[in-house]
Each structure stands twice: as structure tokens, then as C-alpha cells.
Design a protein around this nucleic acid. Sequence first.
DNA 1: CACCTCAGGAGAATGATGTTCCCGTTCACG
DNA 2: CGTGAACGGGAACATCATTCTCCTGAGGTG
Lengths: 220, 220
Amino acid sequence: MNAVPAEPTPPVWRQRAIERSTRAATLRAEQRIERFLEAAQELIAAKGTTDFTVQEVVERSKQSLRSFYQHFDGKHELLLALFEDALGRSADEIRTATAPKKKPLERLRVAVHMLYEQSMPRPGRQSPLFTDFAMQLLGTHPEQVATAHVPLLDLFTELVEEAVESGDAHADKPRRAASLVMQTAMFTAQTPGVPSGSTSTQVSADEVWEFCRGGVTGRT
Amino acid sequence: MNAVPAEPTPPVWRQRAIERSTRAATLRAEQRIERFLEAAQELIAAKGTTDFTVQEVVERSKQSLRSFYQHFDGKHELLLALFEDALGRSADEIRTATAPKKKPLERLRVAVHMLYEQSMPRPGRQSPLFTDFAMQLLGTHPEQVATAHVPLLDLFTELVEEAVESGDAHADKPRRAASLVMQTAMFTAQTPGVPSGSTSTQVSADEVWEFCRGGVTGRT
DNA sequence: CACCTCAGGAGAATGATGTTCCCGTTCACG
DNA sequence: CGTGAACGGGAACATCATTCTCCTGAGGTG
């Protein structure tokens, strides 16, 4: 609101001074934050869950609790940062992988497959971020989940729009359709099949794609 | 295996005696369990989350911690019981609501709508069971979630199969298709729209249905 | 009636975790 | 050099779930 310099002496120089003095601190802070983030990621990769304790992160990053809470609002913030990061990177990865494909629907298919794979609770490998934490977060902080989804949602929206333009799909609200495709891929990857008898209900990536294709292809 | 009465005296009478003596205890136990369950449900309804403490449940049900852990393996078991219950009741409810409908696809549409509604984080009303806890559980005990889903899955499988038989839908694996429809409805109901700008991405029940319809209608 | 058993009540003790606090040190900058 | 902010170390606290200990009362038994 009030951005007018009420000071009589133009504080340009001190502005710079402060900024210079600040920059160093900022840098250090970022570096520390980075260390925490790294440590946390390693722990997640190692343990396969987000159940690490703050202590572990602190020890692994060779910093202190004090410092941790000075840079993060709490464990929750840390996880959230990691989560958004992962989703962002995932979006990039999928984007580059789909780019070379010619047909829009093929791009979308690849995207669904990849998202499905990455959302699946991998045996050992990285990012149970999609799995573990995502679910919990959805229950407690839905808005932040939605925010974190934005990069992926943007990507899928593009893909859907392209498909619509090429006439391969139909959707008055591409973003909604994209949202549906994305969520279907992400969530169905996580629910395991019911162990009952011979018929497992764990749907495969292909099945998810077929389903989504129908959902996007069908005429309104 | 060995069901042969090795006892010289046929223990029929003592069998009865024991049984009679046991029944009372069983009854009492069931009653207590019921009280815990009720209290928990009230707390959930009141607080809108599953964040109540075991203490609260105990106090509200006017029983003791001792008793609680004598009847439940832990808070987790309690929640799970409530969860399965809720899903089962939901399945019943949807089943009766869809029964009168004539056309299979219409039945499926109604089912999707209802499931969506019930999965939505209601402002004040009951069963954030689908919401809150379901998500968390999905991260920690996926198998049990799958188990709890069975009743609903059965219902949706029936509906899909009917639609397939009537020629309104196509699916080589109705159960998988049903799983997809069900999960899509449940999950998309929980993710709120991203608050960014004017275009909310919160999909409506109708949109979910349209999507699922396409997924089930589209030819293989 | 005296006694015994056992479920159940009350609530203290434990253990794991996230979070805050305090003390002394380091480090960059003026 | 002096100063203040950031930091390391780690104790202290708070919240829960879960366990344990002690005790009571109701039923059944002799």
C-alpha cells in the first residue's frame, strides 16, 4: 500500500548497503536450506517413507535443530518444499519426454504412462513423495496439494488442448479434463489391487490410459 | 483336523455351560466396542477430522484406556473399523438409490454422483472418513484400503457389467473399469481447485461423470 | 457367608516426536 | 575490537499413543 519514501534523505545508498549485507546472509540461508532438503531426500530414499525424524535430518545435514526451525516452519514445510520440487521436476521430465512425439494423443498417452509410473510406490527407488506424503497432505492441506499440482496440471492442460485442437479430443474445459486425467493417473497408481482371490483390481498404466482416452475422446 | 472327541464323557453339557458363560462376555464386549465406535464417530462429526485422541474417545464413551486397548489393537484399528463401516453403508445407500433407475448408464451416473458427493469434504456434516483418514490410510496401509473398498467396488462392478451387457458400455475387464470409475469419483472429489486466478480446477460431479462415461463408453 | 477370579476403571509411566528455549561460540561487518 | 545475528549443542517441553500397576466390584463357588 504505502510505498512512498517518507524519509527525507533518499535511502538509495543504504538500500544498497543493506542489500549487499543481506545477500550474503540470504546465500548462506539458501545453502543451509539446501542442505536440509538434500538430507531429507536422502533419508526418504533410504527409508522409503517420509517417516524420518527432524533429528535425523538435522544430524545428516550436520546442522542443528535450532537452525532447522529458523529456516523451516516445521517438518511440514520441509516436506511440502520437497513435494512441490518433485512434482515440478516430474512435470519437466514428462514434458521433455512427450515433446518428440508427433500425435497429440500419443503425447498424452506417454504423459499418463509416465505419471502413473512415477506415482507408483516404487519398490526401492526414489520419490515416495507422490505416494506417502501426497496422500497424507491431501487430507490435511488440500490447497497446498492443489498448488503443488499446478506445474503438472499446466502440462496436462497443454497436452489436452493440443489434442482438442487436432480434433483428437473434445473438451469444453481443457483444464478440468486435464485435472481429471492427471488425478486419475496419479491416484489409481497408488491403490493396490484387492488381494481377494484371482482377480486383482490393480489397474495397469495401459488400462488407465484407455480409460482416460475414452474420457477425453468421447463426444460431449 | 482332529475333531474326534477324545474325552470319555461326552462334553455336550459343559460345552453348553461354557458357551453360556462365554456369550455374556461376548455380548458385553460387543457393547463396549459399540460404545467406543459411537463415541469416535461423534468426535469425528464434531471436530470434522480424525484427529481426536484416544483419551477423548475413552472419556466420551465413559470407559477406560484399559478397556480400549483390550478391545482394539490401537487407534488405527478403530479408525479402520469405522472406515469399513462407512464405506459399506455408503455402498448400500448407493445401491438402493440406483436400483429404481431403468437404464444401466443412468444407474452408473447416479452412483458416480452419489459417491462423489459423499467423498467430498462436507462443510460440517458427517463422514470425513472418506476424506481425511482415507487419504492417510492410503499412504500407510494400502491393502486395508483396498479391502474396505470391496463393497463399493462390487457395486460398481455390477453396474458396469450391466451397462456392458446392455451394450451401453464396453470393457473386457469390468472390475478394473469399475475400479477406475470408483477411484476417479472418490479422489477427484477431494482435490480442491487450485486458487489461481479465475479458473478453478475443482471438477464437478457432472464433469466427473462425463469423463467416466467416456472412459466406459469408448470402444476398445 | 467368606473367598476367589477376572473384567474393568483410574490414571501414572513410557516412549517417540515435533517444537521451543537457553547458553555459549563463531563470523561478518563496521 | 565490538557488536549483533546466526548457529551448534542439547536440554526442556508438549502431545500422543500405548503399556503397566493398583484397585474395585460383581458373579460365581464352596
